[in-house]
């Protein structure tokens, strides 16, 4: 070319990843778990859509939230669901939560040298009836925790949860101790406040909020059924119960 634009071979590296924003969060109670995520999908400063779910029902008692690169996230969820279906055909039962957690770790680590750029949070009911949250990094390191936030607003939400769930930097009243687990109504209030606050201060969070609640078999949903915009997803009347709670978030 006369302008010399091809004098040096031009190299443009193709980047197979992007960040689609959003935030997810899960909190385990004594006999329930809450798993939530906002529904905005963005790239750079553009909102691609106001409704792209990041939280998915896996079994009657397990819910998976994925955050990071949306294409990897959707593919990962699709593959986890497929592995769970194969398990169901082979064993005529749903895979237990701790086993799903280990499955996710091996599936993520299998891609160690071309990772799924996805932060996963798995929530649900363990076989002993306790609420459980497992959180993962993109290459499969994982641990069971009482609560975890991930994604764009992790740095805003996690310190709030440390204070409100783990009672960090709080002193109990004289002669009393902090409760080991909070009731469902308190947890839901904390989750909703977390997302409204993250929406205020983070541009990639907003539009809609989807909150999944899994309640252990035989335990009370503590008035959850009467809240507005609640839908029950339970498949059997005698098993664990699952609900989805939808809320609007600011769209600016």
């Amino acid at each position: 070319m006369p302008d010399g634009s091809f004098a040096h071979p031009q190299q443009r590296q193709f980047n197979p990843y992007t960040d689609n924003g959003g935030t997810i969060l899960a909190i385990a109670g004594a006999d329930f778990t809450v798993i939530a995520g906002d529904t905005r999908q963005s790239e750079g400063y553009s909102i691609q859509t106001r409704y792209a779910p990041k939280v998915f029902r896996l079994t009657d008692r397990a819910v998976l939230a994925v955050n990071g690169f949306a294409a990897d996230g959707n593919m990962f969820v699709k593959k986890v669901k497929q592995r769970l279906e194969w398990y169901r055909h082979a064993h005529a039962k749903d895979m237990p939560l701790h086993a799903i957690a280990r499955l996710i770790q091996t599936m993520l680590y299998a891609q160690r040298f071309f990772p799924y750029y996805v932060y996963n949070i798995l929530g649900g009911i363990e076989e002993d009836g306790s609420g459980a949250v497992y959180s993962f990094d993109p290459v499969g390191s994982y641990e069971r925790e009482a609560c975890r936030a991930a994604g764009a607003a992790q740095s805003l939400v996690q310190p709030f949860l440390d204070n409100q769930i783990y009672f960090k930097n709080q002193k109990a009243a004289a002669g009393q101790s902090h409760p080991a687990h909070l009731p469902l109504s308190d947890v839901l209030a904390i989750v909703i406040d977390s997302f409204t606050s993250a929406t205020e201060r983070h541009i990639e969070v907003g539009d809609g909020l989807e909150i999944y609640v899994v309640v252990a078999k035989g335990r009370s949903p503590q008035g959850l059924e009467t809240m507005r915009n609640v839908q029950e997803l339970s498949t059997r009347p005698d098993g664990d119960r699952m609900f989805i709670l939808r809320r609007e978030l600011k769209k600016d």
Partner: peptide
């Protein structure tokens, strides 16, 4: 929508 990264969404 779908793009070169495999990102999808609907609106």
């Amino acid at each position: 929508y779908v793009d070169l990264l495999g990102t999808t969404y609907s609106a």
